[in-house]
Design a protein around this nucleic acid. Sequence first.
DNA 1: TTGTACGCGTTATCAC
DNA 2: GTGATAACGCGTACAA
Lengths: 341, 341
Amino acid sequence: MGKKNNVTFNDIAKYTNFSKTTISRYFNNPDSLTLENQKIISDALVKLNYKENKVARILANGKTEFIGIIIPNFYHHYYSEMLNQILSTYETFGYKFLVFVGNENEETERRYIQELMAYKIEGLIVLSHTLSSSELADLQIPIVTIEREDEHVCSVNTDNYMGGVQATCLLAKRNCDILIHINSPTSPDLPAYGRIQGFQDTCKEQQLNHRIIYRELESQHEQVKSQLENVLKEVDSNYQGMKKGIFISNDTHANVLLNLLVRKYGTLPDDYLIVGFDNSPISTEAIIPISTVGQQIDKLAFEAVSLLVEQMNERKKRKPKPLKEPIHKVITPVLFHRDTT
Amino acid sequence: MGKKNNVTFNDIAKYTNFSKTTISRYFNNPDSLTLENQKIISDALVKLNYKENKVARILANGKTEFIGIIIPNFYHHYYSEMLNQILSTYETFGYKFLVFVGNENEETERRYIQELMAYKIEGLIVLSHTLSSSELADLQIPIVTIEREDEHVCSVNTDNYMGGVQATCLLAKRNCDILIHINSPTSPDLPAYGRIQGFQDTCKEQQLNHRIIYRELESQHEQVKSQLENVLKEVDSNYQGMKKGIFISNDTHANVLLNLLVRKYGTLPDDYLIVGFDNSPISTEAIIPISTVGQQIDKLAFEAVSLLVEQMNERKKRKPKPLKEPIHKVITPVLFHRDTT
DNA sequence: TTGTACGCGTTATCAC
DNA sequence: GTGATAACGCGTACAA
């Protein structure tokens, strides 16, 4: 707003001998003008090279059409793709997105949120795990979280339990002698815990020989590799000669495991089956395409924005009825059967 | 701005018996108040639960502190990481980012830009290749492009030529009998063309037996795979018994090539060396860690925002001197020597 | 150090 | 169908 040569409604009004009000109406309720006058104004807009100023409109009507996003990182393809899909909803809902990368630091994320609040975002989408849902709820604006702890706020999550069941059933069908789930220690608060539960329940129901191996895998590639190398040694020696079905935390880890096996045996041995999670690009680009459980990221994103828009619209009514209880939507994952099963 | 219970400077002023101006000064020039009075106001802010409103401030002083970003996609790790690094500059410069995903459609991107202009962004970062730099320059706001055609606008690019040279020299040092560069047909306008040029010049200077193979690789995994399968057949038969050094467009493609070789021969044959580009995660996570030329994405991003901020600051001066010529910054890439060379 | 008065560009309200 | 006027919340001469 370079303090000069900004053509405003006033200029248009003078030029056309209408009032500012009529110019405003031309934009917000054109049908209330005669076609003639619409033409006059639209010509003037071109002639004077008018550029609309939504900041002024915000101040006047209170609608920023901003949604804030806090995303934890871009390292996992899952987050990038989720952001991609969220941003793409602009075409449907018209909301603009102010994006911050949370650095897993509480104070930093609080600062980001304050900044977003200062810009009068109408709603907030949180993917980061740093702040508790009760703190988020205190912000008193529409919020949707995705795939994180969500007790006090609306959320959209993958049906992780179903994902666990799908993976487990696939391995079961292949007549494995032992089913193994490898994962990082996971809090039961998190939606992702459902995968573990789904695995466990399915194994118990079908009375399958199974085991869960917890290892800290949320680190760099080399650490993950050495962790899984140890796991593999243990599995190799404990379940020799048995057909092993492994359901592992995600595709990145599945790929590490796969590579360890292929480098050890020259190929994926017949007695090893692997299922990952996420359907990330690595699952198709691996040396052997990896079976995986895929989140429907497009749907998750769309439902998230959709759920947020509902809340935002409700708030704009003269008599808003705030939700009694947070709404939690669930999206079913899809099993991709590839060459590791 | 829920049209109610918004505490404003007016409320603070009444409560503290100061004027609005003094309240404003408390925020923008606190030193001009006595410490006493600062305390009085800061207490009042807490008591009345004041929330700042930057939208109003924008309208008053014209500074949105918004930067618009147009990114083409999130599929390549390069773009995700670049966005990550750009967003991270908030900590340094304080600018907020409005992000749009360009869908390679001109009209769509023009709409995005219009929307950004309506929100009075102070500058624009363009990663997408859809619109020409001359069209961008016509927007008359500070612009920086990254790694795309940039004749008429400021830009930050990797020294692609140097990257090509580095990759080629590495292969040359390994005493390859034939150096092969595989790439998609690339316009000389694009910075990425430098990689091809760097390869070619180095080969010529060092009088190395070389060849450039162009194939359309900007497509889905399966297509890339079958394209490279054909290339491999040709190379296999044409250069039998020779040591082949392959420099290929990027790490994703390098990985496909590597997997084809490993699946064919059980491992990477001694007469094949591979160098990719991007230092993307796949290069370390591949079945055999891939040598690659890495962009310094953090530096690229920082320089881009930095260059933009300079232009934006210049514009705020009473007598702005617009740049005579666009500035083009260049960042040197880094060679990662791994197991494929 | 503090206050007055006005401007930023649009929308909302009420009147005609 | 159109217009006058007052918001919206803050910044900034200019004055005191």
